[in-house]
């Protein structure tokens, strides 16, 4: 493009042409910019402003300074929600090593490779609401299959998602189950990008497949592992659907098991306490940024860019 423009521009009206090119460029991005502005940038500013206000019972809002944030930090409910979000995220992160091993195994089998990928990916394309409903049934304390299987070994299982002490862990296991597929695809692409020569050379030197996994696959895969971990954390901290379906609304475990986003939904859209909801959203942003920044800091110690 630049070659053509400059050739023509050199002969006549370069300034006019440049303006017309700029206008064409702006015309291409304009529809997206309007949407970005109206649906994202303005709402972001508005959420920030709202977080310093209190909505009256008849609409209208008054500026209350940092009151929402102060009551948030004094609210035991918020700390429980934050603790649950962090537990959920930590457990879903434990799924990453599982995904690494499974991705390596899938890559090493000769037959049915695609079949395995499809099977592990099924939960990703299934409605999270549907996933939650099926697992809620499986977890049922009285006649769910898990407790019936445990009973066969004489173990009296807990009521899982109806037990506030256990519920968040039970949901997090479903979180692992649902995220394995995505992680396996990303990690599998990473494994396939590793040069085959390295594996051949090391087998000539007598390295077995376990040794190869730890000496070659794992270090060279570390950038993909890092990516998968960052994405898992960001999406886990925003998890809503599973909690809403498996624990929410009247379950005995609802109070003790809600997450930050569930609390946000309750405050902003069920109790219509918008200022408080906005404050939760802002705090969530800060938490996500802090955890992601921490991950980027820690990566220097373990991610190997060959």
């Amino acid at each position: 493009m630049s070659a053509v423009t400059s050739r023509r521009g050199a002969t006549r009206r370069p300034a006019l042409l440049r303006i017309s090119n700029a206008l064409t460029g702006l015309a291409f991005v304009a529809p997206a910019l309007v949407g970005l502005l109206a649906l994202y940038i303005v709402p972001l500013i508005s959420t920030f402003v709202t977080s310093f206000t209190k909505t009256g019972p008849f609409g209208g809002s008054t500026f209350v300074g940092a009151d929402n944030y102060l009551s948030l930090f004094l609210d035991a409910e918020f700390w429980t929600a934050l603790r649950n979000s962090l537990i959920f995220t930590a457990i879903v992160l434990l799924g990453v090593p599982i995904a690494i091993v499974l991705a390596a195994l899938i890559n090493s089998v000769k037959r049915f490779r695609t079949t395995y990928r499809v099977l592990f990916f099924l939960p990703v394309v299934t409605l999270p609401v549907a996933v939650g409903m099926v697992w809620r049934y499986i977890y049922n304390g009285d006649f769910g299959v898990i407790n019936q299987a445990l009973a066969a070994f004489g173990i009296d299982g807990p009521s899982w998602v109806a037990d506030p002490d256990v519920a968040i862990y039970a949901v997090a296991i479903v979180g692992i189950w649902s995220s394995l597929g995505t992680n396996i695809i990303i990690l599998g692409a990473g494994i396939q990008a590793i040069s085959q020569d390295l594996f051949e050379a090391s087998s000539l030197d007598g390295a077995g497949s376990i040794r190869q996994f730890f000496a070659i696959t794992l270090p060279l895969l570390s950038p993909s592992v890092f990516l998968v971990s960052v994405l898992s954390v960001i999406s886990s901290l925003q998890m809503f659907d599973l909690i809403y379906v498996m624990i929410g609304r009247g379950s005995p475990a609802e109070q003790g098991s809600q997450t930050v986003v569930y609390l946000f939904f309750q405050k902003a859209f069920v109790e219509y306490d918008r200022g408080y909801g906005a404050a939760i959203a802002i705090v969530l942003l800060v938490i996500i940024m802090a955890v992601t920044a921490l991950q980027f800091r820690l990566q220097r110690k373990w991610v190997f860019y060959g």
Binding site: P43, S46, T47, Q238, A268, L284, L285
Partner: peptide, 12 residues
Amino acid sequence: MLMAPSQLFLIA
């Protein structure tokens, strides 16, 4: 905007 959680925008 890629990074920001969607909850930030929902109320507005």
